[in-house]
Design a protein around this nucleic acid. Sequence first.
DNA 1: CATGATGTCTGACTTTAGTCAGATATATTG
DNA 2: CAATATATCTGACTAAAGTCAGACATCATG
Lengths: 290, 290
Amino acid sequence: MLDPISRVRRFNRAVTSAVGALDTSFLGRGRPLGAARVLNAIGHGRSDVAEIRDYLGLDSGLMSRLLRSLEDAGLVETTTHQDDARRRIAKLTRAGRREFAAYEALSNAQADGFLAQHSQREALLAAMDLIASVLTRERVALEEMDPRCEEARHCLGEYYAELGRRFKQGFDVSRSRDPDAKDMRRPRGTFIVAMSDTLPIGCVGLKGTDHGYAEIKRLWVAPAARGLRLGRRLMDATEDAARELGITLLRLDTNSALPEAGQLYRTTGWREISRYNDDPYPDLFFEKRV
Amino acid sequence: MLDPISRVRRFNRAVTSAVGALDTSFLGRGRPLGAARVLNAIGHGRSDVAEIRDYLGLDSGLMSRLLRSLEDAGLVETTTHQDDARRRIAKLTRAGRREFAAYEALSNAQADGFLAQHSQREALLAAMDLIASVLTRERVALEEMDPRCEEARHCLGEYYAELGRRFKQGFDVSRSRDPDAKDMRRPRGTFIVAMSDTLPIGCVGLKGTDHGYAEIKRLWVAPAARGLRLGRRLMDATEDAARELGITLLRLDTNSALPEAGQLYRTTGWREISRYNDDPYPDLFFEKRV
DNA sequence: CATGATGTCTGACTTTAGTCAGATATATTG
DNA sequence: CAATATATCTGACTAAAGTCAGACATCATG
């Protein structure tokens, strides 16, 4: 009734019936669910037939027939892969794009309707982010990105906002030594964003310097993704990138108001060192040889 | 990407594939999903065939066949309803109870596994409660219960804990005028619990007095269910109950540290009056004629 | 270039879910 | 009691999803 397992199962029941409703709404366009799923997979940019089959978990015979039915309806055209004539590439036709847009509109309206049902939108969204992050934790992809791209800027914005909340004196990025974007791009360094599906949920920067070491900056994990050991994965990926770039010594600074970060560094081979810069915010300094 | 609708849709995708996995895990017991659902509905105490059919949204022909297949497998036996020989009552046999227990174990293990994936259990559970409450908002049932029952005690415990957090001076129930349970039972008064599936998510008490009015006490809505206008529904139900009991004048006290409550009373026809008791906690007093 | 692996397609099949039109027995109501 | 409504069941049907074996073209590799 009130024990944790019952609460999870209540959630499962609620969500199962909601998902059922979501599926049947797709049937409103007079197309079996299987065909609709293939159409939408193609619309979302998956073009390789084998990839779609894999993503949707379909038998190759079934996949072939579904694709054929979409072709017959004039929604999809297929060509052969240019490097491998066995593989097929599927693309939407003009009519297919129209149809896909209709499905998208349906999905968006549904999502919008769901949000409209609750006055505490932000709480609801945060809850959904958290659950989606846990469910898709196996599929979080770490991607190297330009620190100026939209995903990176989103992460950094959230990071600064959080420092502002957690530091007693607040946080003003212009007073901190804001790393130059080009120092966090290969070959000087790199910037890694953790993507869960389409949502950026964490980041870390590796900033090259001219002083014989590189610095780790901007390690951030979205509140919804904490507890999934994502910080450790981001740090591991950064160390791998550093080794690739021929960097052998890493440094970082942090603040004791962020105890979980200090804890992470201490348990992953970082050694506390004395202050090596004059940034006003940090009060803890670490070093690691990779 | 980061807009609210995309976040909802990311959640939908995550949950859809998880639900798919959940469904197929049910298939692990070599029984089609339809039959498994009927078996589980019976196991969870639904015995009236029409009720099961309605709950699962099945056609009567299909329901009949599924029931027959479970009977043939020796898992279910049916009898006719004693007051109405057209209706059938389904019960699990010993083998059926064993099979049901296996499904339950599967579901519990699954829920437990999900919880184990995240270190912030409470945050995860709160998020699930919130989403489940929004999804099942249409199906919240207001039920009159004994104020001493488990569901009621859970709500009251949460209510006191919340007052403790929100009142500057804290809250000690023994210093407040704790209503006698028998004053919140028919015919003196009543106690209503809002149930969402198996989870109590709100309550309100109607306490009879000997002074020509009845008092509304213990109005509480779970944090996960706020924003769904449940407070208003609970108040409406209490007024209905009062009318049924022949009560024409209602009073209540509250505290200005609970502004959403005061707001609710002011917009639903309550009139502020002067202090009518010596309880140390309230500082606002209302009255309504029904 | 022979051999085996891979990606796709086709035909033949099964299972599951669901629909619809009666048939049957029982209950309700004027 | 007659007429009507209700609950269940049965038979006949369809749609959708999925399975499996094998055909065929193409690719990779020794």
